[in-house]
């Protein structure tokens, strides 16, 4: 059963830098443009794409950090798109977020104990001494020591700070956590530890995760299902294994060609040419057509929908948005 579900979700930001130009701007940044995404309970969904594709905005929309321009978000069956602040509050503790840079997400003036206690008390999980006790407990859970409650964030290394961020997210007993590039700022040896911690806690607490990243090597190891995003739209969605075994969409294929491995050798040819077009004025038709090696005339006029499609050469089908494959008759 699905825990989080979006339908035709859109977020446009006014383009322009000043207050006035923003107010009167008729140009919009199409950050998220019609996304249908379903995350099943207990699943780790990977959301991948290059910078500027809208993956972080989508994560923020799911938690109602941004308000969507259009579309609906359902959490656990309830439509939370239009809920007000106080109505939303019970859901807030069910949905937590973890960011790329712990230096910016942990208040430097508060002790670790206070950082955790504030979250615990705000969501009425516990108060007073009980809250402190919980804080100690969750620090142990993430591999730190209970006496660390009296220390400040700057006394910890990047990896340890990320553990604190995990402890805070866990401390309000959430069902769903959005992890926005949680290991991108860490060294590889630390990254491996945090990934295995996330994996362990996910199983222990029966969490559902949205893992936002640009690193496909990490995705292969932690995600059950992957959605590939390009310029505000999801272009392909499949189980991790299927996607890596046989990517359908030309963009997914090109992304895979760009993955580097620590294996000596020449730079193989391939990869994506050029740069992502501006999200203010995205290309007509399929958004990837300007960089696509397989683009045909139809791609310029009709934007392919993300639906189940089949290919001539195999019996399998795939949710992808590309004219190269024929949609299944429904």
């Amino acid at each position: 059963m699905s825990l989080v579900e979006t339908h035709a979700l859109r977020k446009y930001f006014p383009a322009g830098t000043g207050f006035v130009s923003r107010l009167f701007a008729d140009k919009k940044v199409h950050a998220v443009d019609g996304v249908d995404l379903t995350i099943d309970r207990g699943q780790t969904m990977g959301l991948v794409g290059e910078s500027g594709c809208g993956k972080s905005t989508l994560g923020n929309l799911l938690l109602r950090i941004h308000d969507p321009t259009e579309g609906t978000i359902r959490f656990n069956g309830t439509d939370i798109t239009a809920l007000s602040g106080s109505e939303l509050r019970p859901y807030r503790s069910e949905m937590q977020m973890m960011f790329q840079n712990p230096q910016n997400s942990l208040n430097p003036k508060h002790t670790v104990g206070k950082i955790l206690r504030k979250a615990i008390e705000f969501h009425d999980v516990a108060h007073g001494d009980k809250a402190t006790e919980l804080a100690r407990q969750y620090l142990t859970e993430v591999g730190l020591r209970p006496e660390h409650v009296d220390r400040y964030p700057h006394e910890f290394s990047g990896g340890q700070q990320q553990r604190i961020a995990i402890a805070r997210a866990l401390s309000v007993d959430p069902e769903f956590i959005v992890l926005d590039e949680p290991v991108s700022a860490l060294d590889v040896s630390v990254q491996a530890k945090i990934l295995s911690l996330i994996e362990d806690l996910k199983n222990e607490y029966d969490l559902t995760l949205l893992f936002i990243t640009h690193d496909l090597n990490v995705v292969r190891h932690v995600c059950d299902e992957v959605s590939v995003m390009y310029l505000g739209e999801i272009v392909e969605n499949a189980s991790t294994e299927d996607l890596f075994n046989d990517p359908y969409h030309p963009y997914t294929r090109a992304l895979f060609d760009s993955i580097t491995l620590p294996e000596p050798g020449e730079l193989s040819s391939g990869g994506i040419q050029g740069e992502t077009p501006s999200p203010i004025d995205p290309p007509s038709g399929c958004r990837f057509r300007t960089r696509c090696p397989d683009a045909v005339a139809e791609c310029e006029t009709v934007n392919p929908e993300l639906v189940e499609r089949e290919r001539d050469t195999s019996a399998e089908t795939r949710d992808t948005a590309c004219h190269l494959y024929d949609p299944l008759d429904r």
Partner: peptide, 24 residues
């Protein structure tokens, strides 16, 4: 060797990412 083993690789999905124990 340990550094190389701690890098996740998409072409080796069944190999667990090896963690270097301890801290710098």
């Amino acid at each position: 060797e340990a550094l190389l083993d701690s890098i996740p690789r998409y072409d080796r999905p069944d190999e667990e990412i090896r963690v270097i124990e301890g801290d710098v």
